[in-house]
Amino acid sequence: MPGRYAHLWFIGPALFLMFAILILPILIAFGLSFTDYGLGNGQANFVGIDNYTAILNKRSFAKMFGATFRYVLVVAPVSVGLGLGAALLLNSLGRIGEIYKTIYFLPVMAALIAMAIVWELALHPEIGVVNRFLSTGCGSPLELWPWYAKGCADGFPFWLTDKRYAIWTVAFIGIWQAFGFNMVLYLAGLTSVPRELYHAAEMDGATSGWERFRLVTWPALGPTTVFVVTITLIRSFQVFDTIEAFYPTGGGPSKSVYVMMFAIYEKGIQQNLLGLGAALTMVFLGFVMLLTIAQRWLVERRVHYS
């Protein structure tokens, strides 16, 4: 017979670990965020909300929010859009589309840190294939495009070290890495769209591809979209590998790529300003939890309505 307390043995370890690894750290971060604590500094002094006001007022943190939001607001919509586009194209192709699916999914599997280092070589101003490829277009009508002509005349950009390009280049790599993941989620979503709906829509006069997409596919993919958007937002908020690989210290040219995860790492780990790092952690956590709660709310609402 099952012991009356068997469940304690089963739940106990999980409960303990959830408390120790998920709950306790949040409490610790909350506590530390009001101090000037550093490892090995002996005691911590209470500094009130100084760390939070520093985050709001210091220029470097203004740059941090700028870089983070720029990155997130580019990577999330573009990688979701490309993921959806690729899924729709592949879905209409049938079996031959499988090969593209395999290729597009490769970046999801490859260690991002490794691929970041490869991208750095590919974008290298002297030995990189990207700029060499661009320069083969010189002399062609492409030069009518002023940007291109300028590149041909003065050399193409230093993608990663020029502050005008750095954040967008890093965002491009983020999109490169993320869209295949979104694509397979959308492909899964597409298989669950009932066929009859298309017939019904056609009966009602929705004959063009766009009409069918607008009236049937898009609404039917609603739950998938809610999920894909949230998970992409949360993941792009957490970007770190590429940035640390390209800019081990300082957050890139004029701090233009100084994203939140990197700021937490720099303040908390590199500079041992744990109080400040903890405050950043709390702000970060606030963003992430807000996103997930918004997602759940959207999902629930849909469930109730249907």
Binding site: L22, P25, I26, A29, M261, I269, V288, I293
Partner: peptide, 14 residues
Amino acid sequence: LIPVHAIALPIYVM
């Protein structure tokens, strides 16, 4: 709701 990476700092302190 909580990505472990987000609370890496306090876990590191512990």
